[in-house]
Amino acid sequence: MMDLLSKDKAVAKLSLKNPIHFLALGFGSGLAAKAPGTFGTIAAIPVFLLMAPLSLPWYIGLTIFSVLIGFYICDKAAKDMGVHDHGAIVWDEIAGLLITMIAAPAGWQWLLAGFILFRFFDILKPWPIRWLDAKVHGGFGIMIDDVLAGIFSLICLQVAAYYLI
């Protein structure tokens, strides 16, 4: 990981000792040399598992908080790097998976399904996700495509749960 910190000039401007950078980099998962978004989503799994036992209002409240604070976290990290939406910034993936898993049925199968759905929508970026990703900038722009991918994934997961349970 430290090797990537020194190789990428934009990432080298960040420090894992800085709490904003640490969160923006998904606890360091965004420093993965390949597929940092996938690793950022993997880093969201323990966060989800910590939040899963909470009541639905608390879970939703913390998820909304992760999105709102994400606007700042992603914006600050992008400005510090001098690059808009650098791949190493993965807080948006963490918030996106948390959105996906709102009111999801318990079980590893549902977590896996949510993970796959979120990665599908985040990578494929169907309209309007792709349009937002291209047109909206700053911390809001970094977050909004993953928020929408999370909402699309949430809907698909809830429809699947409705018909399968």
Rank of each mutant, 00 (worst) to 15 (best):
30 G>I: 02
30 G>M: 06
30 G>W: 01
30 G>F: 04
32 A>K: 05
36 P>V: 07
36 P>E: 01
37 G>L: 00
38 T>V: 03
38 T>S: 13
38 T>H: 06
38 T>P: 11
39 F>S: 00
40 G>C: 04
41 T>W: 01
44 A>D: 02
45 I>G: 01
46 P>E: 04
47 V>L: 04
47 V>C: 00
48 F>H: 14
49 L>H: 05
49 L>T: 09
49 L>C: 13
51 M>N: 11
54 L>N: 09
54 L>F: 14
56 L>F: 14
56 L>T: 15
57 P>Y: 09
59 Y>Q: 03
59 Y>W: 07
61 G>K: 09
62 L>A: 09
66 S>G: 10
67 V>Y: 05
67 V>N: 01
68 L>W: 09
70 G>K: 01
74 C>P: 00
75 D>I: 07
77 A>M: 08
78 A>Q: 11
79 K>S: 12
83 V>T: 13
84 H>W: 11
84 H>G: 05
87 G>H: 03
89 I>T: 10
92 D>N: 07
93 E>M: 00
95 A>H: 07
96 G>W: 01
96 G>R: 02
97 L>N: 04
97 L>Y: 12
101 M>W: 08
101 M>V: 10
101 M>I: 04
102 I>D: 01
102 I>R: 03
103 A>V: 09
106 A>D: 14
107 G>S: 09
107 G>W: 09
110 W>E: 11
110 W>F: 14
110 W>A: 10
111 L>A: 10
112 L>H: 00
112 L>P: 00
113 A>L: 15
116 I>W: 08
116 I>E: 07
117 L>F: 12
118 F>G: 04
119 R>L: 05
121 F>W: 12
123 I>Q: 07
126 P>A: 01
126 P>I: 04
127 W>S: 14
129 I>N: 00
132 L>T: 01
135 K>H: 15
137 H>W: 13
138 G>P: 10
141 G>Y: 10
141 G>F: 03
141 G>D: 03
141 G>R: 09
143 M>P: 01
144 I>C: 11
146 D>G: 02
148 L>K: 04
149 A>Q: 04
149 A>S: 13
